[in-house]
């Protein structure tokens, strides 16, 4: 049964008509054309579809209606602020050389966004724990880990400024 629901995406209130079975990933990709959330597995085992919902990183491929209805969603499209203005986390991952094919990247950025949003001082171990769900076939994780640590520093610098 189709139903109309409200949610806020990247700061903009949206009303969408959805079918009850549709997950958050379907709403974002198919209804709102926000294709930055990537589908890699569809069963919560790769992390590519991760977005931020009400401040928490969630895997949008298993996030059902009850959770995202009236929710506040941040997607990768909501992070950067125009030409030459990447979010510090994005900038850090680029600087660390953590972007290869880029398919796992948006999910990782948003995982770190949620992590540092709550814990600006997250330890190296906490970073690794947070990223464990995110599969990356390209990088061997070294540059991702370096990029995450760099992001922690960039964010602190940005907070001070």
């Amino acid at each position: 049964m189709a139903e109309k629901i409200n949610l806020t995406v990247n700061g903009v209130p949206r009303t969408v008509e959805i079918e009850g079975w549709e997950r958050l990933i379907d709403v974002l990709r198919d209804k709102l054309d926000l294709t930055g959330a990537k589908r890699g597995c569809d069963d919560a085992t790769c992390g590519a579809c991760t977005v931020v919902l009400n401040g928490e990183a969630v895997q949008s491929c298993i996030t059902g209606l009850a959770k995202y209805k009236d929710g506040n969603v941040v997607t990768i499209e909501g992070l950067s602020g125009g030409v030459g203005k990447l979010h510090p986390i994005q900038q850090a991952l680029v600087d660390a050389g953590a972007v290869q094919c880029g398919y796992c990247t948006p999910g990782i950025v948003l995982r770190l966004y949620a992590l540092f949003g709550k814990k600006p001082d997250a330890t190296d171990d906490e970073i690794v724990d947070a990223l464990e769900i995110h599969l990356c076939r390209c990088t061997g994780y070294e540059a991702i880990f370096e990029g995450a640590k760099l992001a922690r520093g960039y964010l602190k610098k940005a907070a001070k400024a």
Partner: peptide, 13 residues
């Protein structure tokens, strides 16, 4: 890098 990290790069899906 920029197109990928901002989610703008277009993949098949």
């Amino acid at each position: 890098a920029t197109a990928k990290i901002t989610g703008k790069a277009k993949f098949l899906a």
